[in-house]
């Protein structure tokens, strides 16, 4: 069994859907060359069977907006002095830029270089987003 020590200060992102941890790390844009990051893939989970888990030491001000889009069932705990000082409830972001790519071949974003892919939340319950340019609707997760 892999054992990762608890951290005294930082962020613990737990219960990430197995296989999605790498994507989370990628979008959080954490510089692993100057920060201590523990990344566990496919760990056993009582809740979900399998899960990914990320611990980032000494950083607490990470932009977690996009995390709600990738896996809003993940849990986020902020640790200070070995204690959980805050639990963050993830929500789907109202607007995401360059996270979902528009796949409509008729959309300007799919052909014009340098155009940011902007999507706006349509319905939180169905996790649907709308392309700012062509209005195509995608489900969160489908176009990532």
């Amino acid at each position: 069994m892999v054992v990762i020590n608890s951290i005294s200060k930082g962020i613990v992102i737990d219960h990430i859907r197995a296989g999605y941890g790498m994507r989370v790390l990628e979008y959080l844009n954490i510089d692993a060359s100057c920060n201590t990051v523990a990344f566990i893939m496919n760990a056993v989970s009582d809740k979900h069977g399998r899960k990914d888990l990320i611990k980032i030491e000494n950083i607490t001000d990470v932009d977690l907006t996009v995390l709600g889009l990738i896996d809003h069932n993940a849990t986020v705990n902020i640790i200070e002095d070995h204690i959980i000082v805050r639990k963050i409830k993830l929500r789907l972001p109202e607007t995401v830029t360059n996270v979902i790519k528009c796949k409509n071949p008729r959309c300007v974003a799919s052909s014009e270089s340098g155009v940011p892919h902007i999507f706006r939340l349509v319905d939180e319950s169905t996790k649907e987003y709308r392309c700012e340019y062509c209005d195509d609707i995608v489900k969160a997760g489908e176009g990532l």
Binding site: C107, V108, A109, E112, Y133
Partner: peptide, 22 residues
């Protein structure tokens, strides 16, 4: 292309009118 006039409008302060995008 759908949304091309929006790309144009985002790139200038001049008023842009969409005369049909795809």
């Amino acid at each position: 292309k759908e949304g091309a006039p929006r790309v144009a409008a985002m790139s200038t302060d001049m008023p842009v009118i969409n005369a049909g995008d795809g």
